[in-house]
Nucleic acid binder design. Structure first.
Lengths: 225, 225
DNA sequence: AAGGTAAGGTAACACACCTTACCTTATGAG
DNA sequence: CTCATAAGGTAAGGTGTGTTACCTTACCTT
């Protein structure tokens, strides 16, 4: 489809004043604003066109219909933003260092306005777009959980932590990071956290995760405070 | 408004074959199914009427318009379902017992189909209905956090746990309970957990919260595994 | 430079939907 | 039994929206 634009030449195609790629990106940007603020059903193609300029014809030429535009948007944002989760974290470092780094980046990504919007949109349309919901989870929280699980397994093998259900523990740790703060941002009840707050929450989560809140008499011999 | 139906008599009003209260409840039940599955914007009054029977006139007589119906639904469900969080938990019991009980009831409530639907709907319409989002948070996660904060403060005062930021810790604990499991249910990727799974996850969360995953060399003297 | 091709814009179609005016019917009072 | 009253149903108004047919315009090829 894209290739058909190149009729019979090796030259890169440069039609009109903006390239098709740029136009597509512009449309997606506008669609992000509209869809993520109002939801899929309450958004109209006209609203998006009003932002990006041009005519509806451009959208239907590029994406086909409203649902496909939404799907493309979700996929694009999910791929782009969540790719940052794939940093090849050095598993060799001490567990608390790795966890803190992991927590910091997860918190930062999750509270990005675009990701908040994506979260809202995917949650809303989980019934209508089950594939998108599945893809979103696998690329985001699912992948994060899997990676964390690997980190924990490695740490357990090294004897850094006791034997645990790594999958469950990973879920819990990620849950701590996506806690009431995240929910409040999603509900528009407070702004995203700044760097300092992210740092503080990441550190607190790591501490609780690794050492708990140190209940002296709980399940083991008492120890000094 | 309701009282006006009693014209000038002490007799209980019994007009038509169903009472207005019953009719109202029926409408709300049908509205819950439609709104929670499709979202506010994608739901139509006709779909609700199709389920509950009668005509649209009944809805407009009782609720005024679509938004008010949605608002009434959210408020009703939130009040009803989240009221269970207000059990007068005995703070005198040991912390792990209280926490486990707390975790179990929160997990049970949060994964109820109605609450999942409510969560989806509120998240979606947070921009359009900021008051509903605020009320939902205050009655649900907000209240839970506040109560847990009180429990932790009391435990700290008794010396059961070390000094911590109780508010932050409460958020983290609640986050652990509303983790990837909750998200997967919200995204229709898996069914709600049964009692056994709830029990297991509650116990795991409490253990991590109170004692961490016991990293021997973390921030304190090593101890035997 | 001319022409063919494809992108871009206009406008209309068809439909779904919220809302309400108007009519019908059931109900309790006298 | 009759009537006033209010609830219930019908259907239409008016608007917004996804989608597409048709025309215009810009660009690349030759």
């Amino acid at each position: 489809m894209e290739a058909n634009r190149v009729v019979n030449s090796d030259h890169p195609v440069r039609r009109r004043r903006t390239t098709p790629e740029q136009k597509r990106a512009d449309i997606l940007d506008a669609a992000a604003v509209v869809f993520f603020e109002r939801g899929f059903a309450a958004s109209s193609i006209d609203m998006i066109i009003e932002r990006v300029g041009g005519s509806k014809r451009a959208i239907y030429k590029e994406f086909g219909n409203k649902e496909a535009l939404f799907a493309a948007l979700v996929t694009e944002i999910a791929d782009g933003a969540l790719a940052a989760l794939d940093t090849p974290d050095s598993k060799s470092a001490a567990l608390d260092t790795v966890l803190t780094r992991f927590a910091r980046s997860l918190l930062t990504i999750y509270t990005t306005p675009k990701l908040i919007g994506l979260y809202r949109a995917v949650v809303t349309e989980a019934v209508r777009f089950p594939d998108l919901a599945s893809a979103f989870f696998d690329k985001g929280p699912g992948r994060a959980a899997t990676r964390l699980e690997g980190i924990l397994d490695a740490a357990r093998a090294r004897g850094e932590i006791k034997a645990i259900d790594a999958k469950l523990a990973a879920d819990h740790f990620i849950g701590m990071l996506r806690d009431n703060l995240h929910l409040q941002v999603v509900l528009c009840l407070r702004p995203p956290p700044d760097t300092a707050e992210i740092e503080a929450r990441a550190a607190a989560a790591v501490t609780i995760f690794l050492t708990g809140i140190e209940a002296p008499g709980h399940q083991k011999g008492k120890r000094a405070r």
